[in-house]
């Protein structure tokens, strides 16, 4: 049972973590990003669409669609993130409101397109893309999804880029004092724009991972607030990558632990509704204890206007 809790917990925690890293990139550069929810949804949609199309070409047995899905999910997330980036960085929209708007638009667009594509291309009146089953890798005698390994690698690269490269140095400076960055001859808007794109790519990866692990399909069911959970995780992690991992693991184990508990106790299915709220309640509790002491990047959410001094 403990094995199960850890295994399932990791499967949930890792996508959450990689999405939170995306959030950290965006927010450390100074752009509030509540759009993660929509980014992961659109990413998953694009990835799932690619997988479904490729599966028709290569057959259901091929694993190629699976890896292509991961790649396309990242591309889709990046592309859609450019909307949030464009509005926040260049159009100077209110970042909080815009994040929510981007999410609402994502839900509407993916729902319409999923239905429309199913009807027109595949001739089925369905509101979901059914994905093939992902292969499992065996690592240390444990069976894991390939995406888990990929996420670990991506996370390490992200850490390295954020804390060791000059791009990372400049990015983190943008979230503290964009004027200093500007004075150093660096284009603040460009850094922020790319940071939001990174958050899109990472969220897309997270979204398609959820699609594979939760239901092996893409549907509107992808929008269950995981994006917001990862924001809570990064707040809890004080906008730093390693502590954020801890928060994501807590969420993951709480969720899988709860499920195992309901199953072990043999409760009726209605009670699983109550278990569903566990991560959300936990999020609120964590925020209650950590929000006050944690310091958001100083320039977070501020619209940077070059002319103003």
């Amino acid at each position: 049972m403990i094995e199960n809790i850890i295994g399932e917990g990791m499967t949930f925690a890792l996508p959450l973590f990689v999405m939170a890293i995306g959030g950290i990139y965006s927010e450390r550069s100074g752009i509030t990003n509540l759009a993660l929810e929509g980014l992961q949804g659109v990413g998953a949609f694009v990835g799932a669409l690619a997988a479904v199309l490729l599966a028709r070409v290569f057959g259901a047995q091929s694993q190629l669609p699976y890896y292509a899905a991961l790649l396309f999910a990242m591309l889709g997330g990046t592309l859609y993130a450019s909307l949030h980036a464009l509005l926040c960085v260049y159009f100077k929209a209110n970042q909080v409101i815009n994040g929510v708007v981007v999410n609402i638009l994502a839900m509407a667009l993916t729902a319409v397109f999923t239905k429309g594509i199913n009807r027109r291309l595949f001739g089925t009146p369905s509101d979901k893309f059914v994905l093939g089953v992902s292969e499992r890798w065996s690592i240390l005698e444990k069976s894991v999804y390939p995406f888990e390994v990929i996420i670990v690698v991506v996370a390490m690269i992200s850490w390295y880029v954020l804390y060791r490269t000059k791009y990372g140095l400049r990015l983190r400076a943008c979230g503290d004092n964009p004027h200093a960055v500007d004075a150093a001859g660096i284009d603040v808007a460009k850094i922020r724009f790319t940071a939001v794109l990174v958050s899109g790519a990472l969220s897309g990866l997270a979204g398609i991972s959820f699609a594979y692990s939760v239901s092996a399909s893409f549907s509107s069911g992808i929008y269950v607030g995981y994006g917001y959970l990862s924001i809570a995780a990064l707040i809890f992690g004080n906008w730093k990558i390693v502590p954020t991992l801890v928060a994501c693991l807590v969420f993951g184990f709480a969720k899988s632990g709860g499920y195992q508990l309901v199953q072990a106790a043999g409760l009726p299915s209605s009670y699983s509704d109550l278990i569903m709220i566990l991560p959300y309640v936990l999020t609120l509790l964590l925020l209650v204890f950590f929000s006050k002491h944690n310091h958001a990047p100083r320039a977070l959410g501020e619209i940077y206007d070059k002319g103003k001094r």
Binding site: I231, I277, L287
Partner: peptide, 17 residues
């Protein structure tokens, strides 16, 4: 606590309850 995050969390909690 960012009101958007807590709002969403409460939405889900209330919905399931």
């Amino acid at each position: 606590i960012n009101e958007v995050v807590s709002s969403i969390m409460l939405n889900y909690i209330l919905q399931y309850i």
